[in-house]
Nucleic acid binder design. Structure first.
Lengths: 216, 216, 216, 216
DNA sequence: TATGAATGAGCCTTCATTCAT
DNA sequence: AATGAATGAAGGCTCATTCAT
């Protein structure tokens, strides 16, 4: 009996050690858990059709617990957005590091963009659909995330123009919108269709067409 | 060419005259009135934040009256969509009639697309934002409107490929999505920004870049 | 049939005529109904222990209906207070009209005060207990109702002092508080006890003792 | 007279010493700490608007700790009441000891009553407002504290009547209510107003008027 | 047709209380 | 004894929809 108890303790403490290694605090775990659940629930039913209680029950916590980590239902949506945004931008900037040509940079962006969404369809749904509920929300979305993301794309285009690779009679801003718009449409199409999409191929197609379109 | 254009105008105006004749005593007026009010209210506050009572009061009718013309709140959104969709497709097909080259057809589509939305910002908001609330809604949106609209675009692209104007190593479907995605992003940008947009110039930019990108 | 219809119309219109005489609109009926129900429910269970749904069901309406007539739960309490306050002051001032001596005026006030509360025990409970929930509420209570009511009492005392009936070495304000305090305690005692109270006799006792206490 | 007073002081101070002895290591301190915090919080926000967590944080303890000393939120209110009540009655009875005339006893009671509340405004608020939330609460308040307190007052009045100082045609019970009511109103007025009150003077005014009113 | 008062299901949020640590 | 994260019941309020007039 003592042996069992001891081994149980061992298991527990080793589990703890592991969890400490994986995630800094136990707090992050639950917040993430809820956020993950919210992503799933919002993706399946839509934000307004989803209930906080559903999110909680999918996360395996009580309804009230959600409010220990988030200010309210809206905050769940905002937090999904902000967390992903942080990751996307960090990943995007990191990916830019070891790439030389502007064309190659655009290719990296396009692939990252679609591969990220392709990896987590629930997240993709939230980004392509749920986050665009309201002009208010979209404005927020635009002013924060897109601003930086557009800057990432635009920088590559401007570079290419200055290097004489892209023609200069196309406004970099307009070109950026076109590039993003094309990717965004691929993502939305993926989200809405039940067919498998070869998102990497689609990313390449967008890049090829775009580069052809803008090159001198 | 001018002739066709004229006959299209004639058809349009006769349809208008007919609709006045068909719907006797301002019946259509009230349905339209409510639909117009709904467009405005949904655009300003968002679909879920809007109340049927608000739509009614903007339309100058009692709340109950809305239910004499529409099955429910959802039906308002669907009806806005369907009515505009009908017009868009009719206008699009009519515009195709007197145009010869595929490139020119794409330019017509792009201009119509953005000019229509530029003309009525409330409608633009509903199309770019409110109609995309839910995967369910978007699927419906996709399967009806987009299917036909994509077909319109795709036909021009396929024609161009067959005429040897566009290269064939780009999937017509993918090219269609890119073309539409670019336009859609322009529209969304217009909806979200408070600046004036020269949508015609943006339409042309999209077309130029696209054609450059796909031409042999 | 026409006859029946006519007589029905007659009945209706005469009923309407009556109701117009009694209460301006049919609207007031329902508002009053709900207010009456709220008084009863609040008196029995206490404001915070009462549910809006209870008030509604006692009033025989749906929960949502309460919100057609009142801004919220708080508004019910405030409205009970304000309506009664209006009546009390009007009645109080009217009663002052035909009375000559200040002493007699105080007697009238005291009797009206206790008789009014004695007549409707639920209202008495709300006034003596429920309306005094919070310092905030009591301040409001004080600043509106009591201010005017105190003025009514104080005027009689000042008159008596000027006529040389009451001695002047007692502050009129302090005397007013004592007079009101004594009445208020009688009312509270009545509210809290299950015994029958001869409130008229108690009113007289208060007045006698008070007048003896302040007379020269 | 002085002797009695002294012995009363002795009793009090020995009780204090004892309680320190009985409650070993600051145990009473924490209970008192929480009770003091509750008094403050309830006074400022009202009982129902106060949260147990607020009380705990003002007391500098965790929410759960409150439940080690009190059965629940209600128990906090009841305990504030009971502790003060014990003190008031003890102090009141002690004060009665060395006083000869009934009139003088009433004066002592009145001064103690108002001075005690004047000393601790938060306590005054709880007594004048928060403790009167509900008929249920008030009944409890009445049946315990007031019963004894009224007995204290009544005894003085009956004595005075038997000594022929007060007239006998006024019911001692009614007179007691009037006396208490007047004092209570002074206290409530003090609680609700932001002005400074000379509560000792008001106590004297109540006593003077009352004695004048009841004396033969 | 038109009205708008009435309905009542539905949901977010709060917070007293518990309990594993 | 002390903590404070977690619980989950409870209730105020909204608003789409109905229906008697």
């Amino acid at each position: 009996m003592a042996g069992v108890s001891t081994s149980a303790m061992r298991a527990t403490s080793s589990a703890r050690r592991l969890s400490v290694v994986r995630q800094p605090a136990g707090v992050g775990d639950k917040r993430d858990l809820i956020l993950k659940a919210a992503t799933k629930v919002f993706a399946r039913h839509g934000f307004f059709q989803s209930q906080v209680a559903d999110v909680a029950s999918v996360a395996g916590v009580a309804a009230g617990t959600v409010y220990l980590y988030f200010k309210g239902k809206d905050d769940l949506l905002v937090s999904i957005f902000e967390r992903s945004m942080r990751d996307v931008l960090a990943e995007g900037r990191a990916a830019m590091a070891g790439v030389d040509g502007p064309a190659e940079r655009l290719r990296r962006i396009a692939r990252l963009h679609l591969e990220r969404l392709g990896r987590d369809k629930d997240l993709a749904v939230v980004f392509q659909v749920e986050l665009r509920h309201t002009v208010k929300f979209m404005e927020r979305f635009s002013e924060t995330f897109l601003q930086d993301y557009f800057a990432l794309i635009r920088a590559a285009i401007v570079d290419a123009q200055q290097q004489g690779v892209f023609r200069k009679d196309v406004s970099a801003t307009t070109a950026t919108k076109i590039f993003f718009g094309a990717l965004d449409e691929m993502a939305t199409n993926f989200v809405l269709s039940r067919r498998r999409h070869d998102l990497r191929a689609e990313a390449d197609a967008v890049v090829d067409l775009f580069i052809n379109g803008v090159k001198r």
